[in-house]
Design a protein around this nucleic acid. Structure first.
Length: 203
DNA sequence: AGTGCGATTGACT
DNA sequence: GTCAATCGCACTA
């Protein structure tokens, strides 16, 4: 495990698949980097969900609004919104500019900055730090101020390559929806300790 | 202007 | 397992 984020390499936009579902798979195993005044934080993506073009459960389904406009940026930009009035959720925009689709980051394996994350979350247990889309944003101090940021450039929030072997990826239905509930658009590192959701969706 | 409802979490039985 | 918290947004009128 790395002790610092100094030698992370930023993901090039050209290596991101245009297609939302392919991007959701591609992002598994990549690294989210958060630079704060108190230091660098990072985690490895172990769970994502695709919200592709024409998806009735997607926020872009009814067109562009003030809330969701970051989804319409070209692939690799952050779309962050407040869910249930309590949790910020982090997405990566997909497709070409003007289309409107994205990938939700649902869980991370915490890597760098464990102590600040524990402070941000007010929990000690590593497993509770970033397991869940609202938990990982709290751990990394991610909120609406970072909405629209380019994740393919170093800065306060960006994506890095990782140099591990490609993990074994499982597929399931998405979590927490009331519409389009049957589509297999959730991807996760099979059996990983830091994947969210019920056990049945981690095999 | 009012209403209903989440891409969730934490506390509790 | 159940359930309330909490608020911005989409939708109706």
């Amino acid at each position: 495990m790395r002790l610092a984020t100094d030698d992370y390499e930023v993901l090039a936009r050209t290596e991101l698949p245009l297609d939302t579902v392919l991007l959701a798979r591609h992002l598994i195993g990549k690294i989210v980097v958060r630079e704060t005044p108190e230091g660098s934080l990072s985690g490895r993506i172990v769970e994502t969900e695709a919200y592709p073009v024409g998806d009735a459960a997607g926020h872009a389904y009814r067109g562009e609004t003030l809330r969701n406009d970051a989804l319409f940026l070209c692939r690799g930009h952050a779309y962050i919104y407040l869910a249930y009035g309590t949790s910020y959720l982090l997405n990566v925009s997909s497709e070409t500019a003007g289309i409107g689709a994205g990938v939700l980051i649902r869980a991370l394996e915490p890597l760098v900055g464990l102590q600040p994350m524990q402070r941000n979350r007010r929990v000690q247990k590593l497993r509770d730090l970033t397991r869940g889309p609202g938990r990982l944003t709290a751990a990394l101090d991610i909120n609406r101020r970072l909405n629209g940021i380019d994740l393919c450039r170093t800065g306060p929030l960006w994506l890095a390559r990782d140099d591990h072997d490609a993990p074994e990826i499982g597929t399931s239905v998405r979590i927490g929806l009331s519409r389009a509930t049957d589509r297999p658009l959730r991807f996760y590192v099979r059996g990983d300790h830091f994947v969210s959701g019920p056990k049945a969706l981690n095999r």
